[in-house]
Design a binder for these strands. Structure first.
Lengths: 147, 147
DNA sequence: CACAACTATATTGTGCACAATCTATTTGCG
DNA sequence: CGCAAATAGATTGTGCACAATATAGTTGTG
């Protein structure tokens, strides 16, 4: 049997990735709980704030790698909270346009310092964060290329 | 207002981490579905296979960063599938010892090539995987140091 | 202009995650 | 010893994720 060090390494990569993502999400959730928000709800708002205009459900899903089965209930909660409004696209009735409300825009300012607070707590160096970001982008590209 | 590039970077790190972890978990789940397993169930088996003897629920939780609220139902499904056995520790009746069954040990061989298949598909270089692992470990250490 | 194929979103069902709480044990400590 | 504090695990309730399916709307082709 040949030695395959890359196999042992691969074995050990999925668990840290899984644990790190949940750990960061948990930290965000702790800070966001002051606004009664969850991390996926916050991520959805980030996608909307980042866009110049309204997005369809599918466009939000592309940006977050989530499908309608996940997004529909998240968007309903954001709508109930008053942060977004949903309406069918008149030009194509299959689509639903999601836009931020004035309350949603006001929220943006109240949570502007959340990422800084979370990442400062982790003690991760900016150079490490940059490197981590580059590696994750490479991994995501590889994953997207599969299907 | 001062420029703070590290803030913009931090903003952009949580989403790739979140998406990459779910993307890899989804790929594992696709491959593991042949055995009727989910990723958390597989991760739990990895922890047990890696240990020299039985583990308590809490010891599995330390290794995977999960609590009993998540692990108890996962362990029940693994027990129903015949892969693990649970028994109260006679020396301390608060604890539950979890051990692999012969079927659980047989499973180990059947899923031995799963990580290699998943990671090969991503096209990630071994050197990148090693670097990613190191950065995730640093992040996890930072997270553990908070609470 | 039918109408089949396609597309966008919603619904359903299963299985995590995790906070909060509960119960049963065990362990100090006076 | 006796009992409060601590510990281990289970339970409960909410909110994702995601596969599979359903439904409504659109488009290309003959």
């Amino acid at each position: 049997m040949t030695d395959r060090p890359q196999l042992a390494l691969a074995e050990q990569l999925c668990l840290p990735l899984y644990a790190a993502a949940r750990g960061i999400t948990r930290r965000y959730a702790e800070v966001l709980s002051a606004e009664g928000m969850t991390y996926p709800q916050y991520a959805t708002m980030l996608a909307l704030w980042d866009a110049p205009g309204p997005l369809t459900v599918g466009e939000i899903g592309e940006r977050l790698h989530l499908d309608s089965g996940t997004l529909t209930p998240v968007l309903k909660r954001l709508e109930n909270a008053g942060y977004v409004a949903r309406q069918r696209d008149a030009a194509d009735e299959r689509r639903v346009l999601v836009r931020t409300t004035p309350e949603g825009e006001a929220l943006r300012g109240r949570v502007a310092d959340v990422p800084e607070r979370v990442w400062a707590d982790t003690g991760l160096q900016v150079s490490d964060a940059r490197e981590l970001r580059a590696l994750l982008d490479r991994l995501l590209s590889g994953l997207d290329a599969i299907s």
